[in-house]
Write a protein that binds this DNA or RNA. Structure first.
Lengths: 325, 325
DNA sequence: GCTGTCATGTCAAACGTTTGACACATGATG
DNA sequence: CATCATGTGTCAAACGTTTGACATGACAGC
């Protein structure tokens, strides 16, 4: 790989001059500029971002930690984060935590050693303290880790409310929400409160069923959904904290012979691709992922540039109606 | 961020000594070692991989280019590549090409500037020549770019054959394969030949329908699938080059009132999560993604370490039967 | 008392880049 | 003619790390 010295030698100038041409600073005559450019082309020179990073003390790389991109929600989140980062001139170092605390701890060290300029936490298996002691700019997805760690999320209460109101409007009178078990500082807990609140306001019976174990591990879903149907034989409106759960519920309904949407109605969460792929299409709460990702990246960039953060606020969600309601 | 100099000062030794402790080379007394370790702990020191990379001329980072992690297949591929890279001590810089040739060209430059040690091409929108002139170690997914660029893939002919044989075995007599349009040097083209060959061997009628435009853009799928059903009213066995296509076909069947699997049978490709989420579950051809990813990473590592590559060969696929056949 | 060899540690160059400080023309201004 | 601005370019330090070359002291063997 050619270096700036090779370019300088070939163009018959000093390395400083080459650097000046690349960075457009100082006075350079057109003739010199052309010579330098030609030498760069001929050598296929690409400046080393590594050397630049060392000098400038910033890498223009963000770390993104997600449980796994194999989950459709996180695959889509990753897509949008990458796009947002790219737009602001940052690259992404992708890390999978796989729901494993010690893996996540390792990843934080790895990202620190690689001097990433900021970290987006799409996974948080560790205690708040462990994140707190990191001094890198961070943005935490769906969880309030500490007052000084910015977060980004969507309006989970509103999501829960929209789901309940929609089910009620569509004629349901016995609602069940199937939810993961959330740490208390996770915003996603708001989905349940919004859901219950809206049901109560309408005088409709509503219950919450919590999944055990990993909220995102689908291997338990088939049994869970079958159990939900069996234990709530009169339920006619189901709400899930992810589209994936709803997908498994749809299967369970088919197996139990409950017709959707006639006998029972389903609402998912995320508006991930899954909701489009299912038959019937899944009514779901749409999170504005692109906006959320842009917000997260913006939040890191602001921290880096010393621009004060705007007070964080959840982004609005909407209900997308499809065939399951 | 503390540097090695801070650690040395705090421990009362030279930076060389600190470096020796970290890298375990030369003679260091236990007492010195302990002093240094303590200083590192107290300062929360993490060595800069950037400085190391500059010196060692390798970054221990691989670039991964995929169209988008929002597509379930590529989300899963990314997951496995990350895991395989991590296992071998490499990090991943994730890039989305979004099916855009000029974006991909930019990404190659970006990865070169960041001095990645190798590139995994899960997307190839450019002409072979453009990849060829890169001298970085590469591994190309599902496409033979040039004799000197290693590739990794699964046995596509076998996949096509298994699908046809299975459909025939399940009683189908009029087969249709819905396929993306592939560049001639893409291995995925083999799926069609395997499919046709197996059908011919069994004396069963089989046709290929090619999608127009982007093989992975799902917005056209609903109309496409409706058209396929309308134009082939006597078809009773469908095979798709992705699970996602099959998902849309399943919807089209429901809308057309064709019962699955009684009236018509469907086979997808990839065994991505989609095949599990659908109802009925999708029979599909399973690609061994984890093995493929490990192979790709191994291939890059070998190039870096100068270990000769084993002759590339497609990995075996299997058929996973579910409810659509 | 030499020489040799451990055991421990220091020095300084190198990696590829940027950039402040400076050098040296040329020509205009006062 | 002294001063100044402008245009062009050079030099060397700095970023954080590794590592070959060297220094020092202790002790053994001859």
């Amino acid at each position: 790989m050619a270096t700036i010295h090779d370019v300088a030698a070939r163009a018959g100038v000093s390395v400083t001059t080459v650097s000046r041409v690349m960075n457009d600073r100082g006075y350079i005559s057109e003739a010199t500029r052309a010579k330098v450019r030609r030498a760069m082309d001929e050598l296929g020179y690409e400046p080393s971002e590594i050397a630049r990073s060392l000098l400038r003390k910033q890498s223009h790389v963000f770390g993104l930690i997600v449980p796994t991109t194999a989950h459709p929600f996180f695959g889509e989140l990753t897509h949008h984060v990458e796009a947002a980062a790219c737009e602001r001139g940052y690259k992404l170092m992708l890390c999978h935590s796989g729901f494993d605390a010690s893996k996540e701890r390792e990843l934080l060290g790895l990202l620190a050693r690689n001097r990433v300029d900021g970290i987006i936490l799409g996974s948080h298996e560790l205690d708040v303290e462990e994140y707190r002691k990191l001094k890198a700019p961070m943005a935490s997805f769906d969880r309030r880790l500490s007052p000084d760690i910015p977060w980004f999320t969507s309006d989970n209460e509103q999501g829960g409310r929209l789901a309940a109101e929609h089910l009620i409007e569509r004629g349901c009178s016995r609602l069940i929400m199937v939810s993961g078990r959330y740490k208390p500082d996770m915003f996603t807990a708001g989905r349940a409160s919004g859901f219950l609140q809206a049901a109560r306001a309408a005088g409709v019976q509503a219950d919450i069923v919590e999944t055990v174990g990993d909220a995102l591990d689908e291997t338990g879903y088939p049994k869970l959904m079958a159990r939900v149907l069996k234990q709530h034989p009169r339920a006619d409106g189901l709400f899930f904290t992810s589209d994936l759960m709803a997908a498994y519920a749809l299967r369970a309904c088919a197996e139990a012979g409950w017709r959707v949407p006639e006998r029972i109605k389903l609402v998912g969460y995320d508006d991930s691709g899954v909701s489009r792929w299912l038959q019937p299409g899944l009514t779901t709460i749409r999170q504005p992922l692109a906006d959320m990702a842009a917000l997260a990246v913006d939040c890191l960039v602001r921290q880096l540039e010393g621009i004060p953060l705007e007070p964080a606020r959840p982004l609005p969600v909407t209900l997308v109606q499809r065939g399951t309601t």
